[in-house]
Each structure stands twice: as structure tokens, then as C-alpha cells.
Amino acid sequence: MVLQLKKEYTERKRRSQNLAFWLFRLMSMLVVGILFVILGFIIIKGFSVISWGFLTKMPTEGMTSGGIFPAIIGTLCLIVGSMIFSFPVGVLSGIYINEYLRNGYTVRFIRMMTNNLAGIPSIVFGLFGMSLFVNTMGFGDSLLAGSLTLGLLTLPVVIRTTEEALLAVDDSFRQGSYALGASKLYTVRKVVLPIAYPNIITGLILSIGRVSGETAPILFTVAAYFLPKLPTSIFDQAMALPYHLYVLATSGTDITKSRPMAYGTALVLVLLVLVLNLAANALRRYFSKRVKMN
């Protein structure tokens, strides 16, 4: 009798295991599927528009033909600009929080504030950026204002990944360094940071993705509707890919004509992020190797 029950139980267990397995499999396939669908959609619809001219020429005829060169340049400038601000500030803050502050109220407070900052909607950032950089500080709609705003946006991400990267460095390395008479600064510079670099670069990667795609913060701070010339100073306005996409898809002079260009822009945007990510990953791997060897 007992044996019979055991058999049934084993059978039921096997069936439920199988069911769960297939459910998980289905879900992950779904995810991959969605990714492919989106990419495929964009590639198919936008591929026809891509050409060397598209990439390097200015938009013409009310943006129904020509290229998106200024938008590409604008986005690149914004990426670099926001990095210049968020990276040093973020990494150094992360180092200060994790290495210099002893665990206490201050640290917890800072962490809480950082998390809150990360949760603020991006359009609010845009508004703030307009208010502070564009108006109060008088930069006007400019690459400077846009970069600063985007920099603020990604700051929490950089701080958090830096902190995680530093936390991941085993304490035994620090102890070993202190025991040899090294100061905290020396230890951080020569032992902790080299180990943490690869993971700090992760922060960079995440930021790139975020910055290139954000539309709301650049709406009021830098983005130009139609500016068929390249920015020459940081105080200039500029076009940007995400905004340009929005414009082409919704309010251009002739929507049906500019629709294919919208898809083309989307494709370029996706490819741009992809390429930058690959570059950052290569950088990460380079640092990983150096960690063992310097």
C-alpha cells in the first residue's frame, strides 16, 4: 500500500517538475522572441533608408529626405558631455561613500538619497535642467545644459555601480595592504580601484544606453527641431536622435514621407548604442586582464 502511494507521489512530482520547466522555457523564449521581433521590425522597416548619405548628410526638404548627420553628432556629444560630468563625480562619490565613510547614519542617508534620485521621472529632470541650467544659469538651450541634465540623470546609476564594484572587492586585499603600512588613499589607488575597474566600467555601459535614448530631459534643454548645421560650441543647440525620431514620426512636414526615415533613425540609434556597448565591453575586458597583471 505504501509502495503504491510512493509511486503515485513520485509520478506527480515528475509531472509538476516538467510543467515548471516548460513554463520557464516558454517565458524565456518569449523574452528572446520579443527582442527579435522589435529588432526585426526596426531593421526591416528602416533598412531601406540606410545609406552612407543618410548617415552623413544634413536633413533637407523639411526632413523628408537627406540625412540625420547632425542628430548623430548631437547624440554623440551629449553622451560624451554627460559622461564628463557624471563619471568623475559619480565614481569619486562612490569611492568616498564606500571607502571613507564608516557605516553609519551618513552612509545610509546618502544611499537613500541616491536611490530617490534614481527614481525621479526623466521629464522632471528635464524641467529641472531647464529651470537651473537653461534659465537661472543662463546657458540657454545648449549642449552644456543638455549634458549636465543627462549627467544628473545617470549620476545615481554611476554611484551605485561604483559602490557595488568597490563592495565586491574582497576586504582581504585591503587588509593585506594596510598591514604593509599603506595609507587608505594608496590602498584605494593601487589595490582596490584596479580590481574594481571592470565593474565600474559596467556603470559606464549602463549610462551610455540610458543617455542615448532619453528624450524627455533633452526636450527643454538642448534638442532642436531642425538645425541643419553642426554645433560649434557647447552653448549651441543641437539635434539628437531620440528627439529626431519623435519629430519624424509625429510632427514632420509630411509624415508619410518621413516615416521611413523615422525607422532609419531608430535603427541608427539602436546600432549606435550597440557599438558603444561593444566598445565599453572591450574596455572592460582589457581592464579585467590588467587586474591580474599590473
Binding site: 574582497d170 582581504s172 586585499f173 587588509q175 593585506g176 603600512g181 589595490v191 584596479p194 580590481i195
Partner: peptide, 15 residues
């Protein structure tokens, strides 16, 4: 700490 050197339980060479 230069005068008194230390060796730890788990080997911890630097990378």
C-alpha cells in the same frame, strides 16, 4: 606596520 608584518589566514596576494 613596517616593523610588525602580518600574514593572514587565507593567502591574499594582490592581483
Amino acid at each position: 606596520r613596517i616593523k610588525a608584518g602580518m600574514v593572514f589566514q587565507k593567502p591574499n596576494p594582490f592581483p
